[in-house]
């Protein structure tokens, strides 16, 4: 499973990196686009890491490092697009973009920010709030990103994009089940008094 995911991620990045569209783009715009592809790819990697598909146990440190990489990719994506066409990015952030995927991108951005902030503050948060909050943000992030990516006519190959858009949500559902996050939503059982 891990090998397949690595191959898919590699193929997606390679295809996007050799797209003919790149010939007509500035280096910064190219980097911004690839950062977006990398972000989508990381959304497949993240649940696999924390769900324990790669290592015998949940790879929490790898998950955290990949999370940092994801945050950097999101920042590069938004910043690169901002420099390339500021008014278009402003429209997206204000939810008034004419593109149907723009709003999903903005939702995904804020979900990513929220998930990252929760991760940074997790030691100061009640454990249940941290877990449920982080997973909820991740769920919104994955769904919004998939919709965002799927509607875009960009540099990604159709097949690799479709696979990532199907497998990332599937992996997220799998990891949530595997880790039993949903159980935290139930009321804690009262301990019986002797």
């Amino acid at each position: 499973m891990a090998l397949g995911a690595v191959l898919l991620i590699g193929a997606a990045l390679w295809q996007a990196g050799t797209s003919p569209l790149l010939a007509w783009r500035d280096p910064l715009y190219v980097a911004a686009g690839l950062a977006g592809v990398a972000g989508l790819a990381l959304l497949l990697a993240q649940p696999l890491l924390i769900g324990g598909a790669v290592t015998p146990r949940p790879a929490r440190r790898l998950h955290a490092m990949a999370g940092a990489a994801l945050a950097a990719a999101v920042a590069l994506h938004v910043a690169g697009l901002w420099v390339t066409s500021p008014p278009d990015v402003v429209d997206v952030l204000l939810f008034r973009s004419p593109t149907p995927f723009g709003a999903w991108g903005a939702v995904a951005l804020w979900a990513a920010v929220a998930a990252a902030l929760l991760a940074l503050a997790r030691h100061r948060l009640p454990p249940r709030l941290w877990r449920v909050g982080h997973v909820a943000c991740a769920g919104v992030l994955v769904v919004a990103t998939v919709l965002h990516a799927w509607l875009i006519q960009g540099t990604m190959g159709t097949a690799s994009k479709a696979l990532l858009c199907v497998l990332a949500p599937a992996a997220t559902v799998w990891a949530v089940r595997r880790r039993g996050t949903w159980r935290l939503l139930m009321r804690p059982r009262r301990s019986r008094t002797p």
Partner: peptide, 8 residues
């Protein structure tokens, strides 16, 4: 015209 910002 080439696709930019997700749409041609």
């Amino acid at each position: 015209i080439v696709p930019a910002f997700g749409q041609p």
